[in-house]
Amino acid sequence: MDSKLAFYIVKRVLLAAFTVFLVITITFFVMKAIPGGPFLSEKSPSPEVMAQLEAKYGLDKPIFEQYTTYLKDVLHFDFGPSIKNRGRNVTDLILEGFQTSGKLGIIAAMLAIACGLTLGALAAVFHDKVLDKVIMVLSTGSVAMPSFVIATILLLAFCVKIPIFPSNGSTAGGLVLPVIALSLYPMAYITRLTRSSMLDVLGQDYIRTARAKGVSPAKVIFKHSLKNAVTPVITYVGPMIAYILTGSLVVEQIFVVPGIGKFFFSSIINRDYPMVMGTTIFLATIMVIMTLISDICYKIFDPRVDLS
């Protein structure tokens, strides 16, 4: 690693820490500004119980004091207890869920990248041919269809009509359908990005020159075209992996996958303040890491990029 790259990484890590700090601050105050509270339900607890609960979670203190206490705790990697899930820590709940969401996300991301690049490259090489048209129709359909529709179709088709996969994501083999449901959208998006980028590159002068000089078609496609066409895909892939790793509420709900996707939604609905903060910090951290990796990948794929 050259010193320029090392300096760049250090700079970006510091910037990332500052970004996470900003995210914590904004989320904390916005979250407190929303009406409602974690202890409200159809049956409200008595004022005595409410007071005890507020004291237990430090919600009776002035908001700025709550904020500074929270920042101190975060510096010690203590994200506090979940208010909704009594007796459970936010860190434990997130890490427990991430074991599943992470596994599911990595498989789905790899599948999406591998198939997306391949299909996109094939569509570009066979531009305006039947194969291109078929890939484009399929990818347009996959991009346009919301994940809950895809997931429900998969569930109906392969768990009820032709029951070859379990409908429960936590059983053996249960991740197959969630992986497909989760990877279809990014796969289709990468296919379309790769195709348009490849078409652009294939029309460049240096490709024509390479072909004129008798370079083999495979070499032209893989070495000269795909490598240069992959840059816009990297821009998309970084945040995509971050999102896919942190789970999907819809896919996890439908296939009963015990991931962390549900927490992003339920923590806000329940006003589970520590959980809202925990999930937001978790997503923000993964997001800045993936963006950093994307930027470093730019440099690797395109030496013209000046990281300084």
């Binding site: 990595i106 498989i107 790899m110 599948l111 990248i113 591998a114 198939c115 070859i164 996969f165 379990p166 059983t171 053996a172 083999g173 249960g174 991740l175 197959v176 992986v179």
Partner: peptide, 15 residues
Amino acid sequence: FAMILGCMAFAGCGK
């Protein structure tokens, strides 16, 4: 890699 992971996920389905 994607295929291997896919196969791992498929393994044991039906139980």
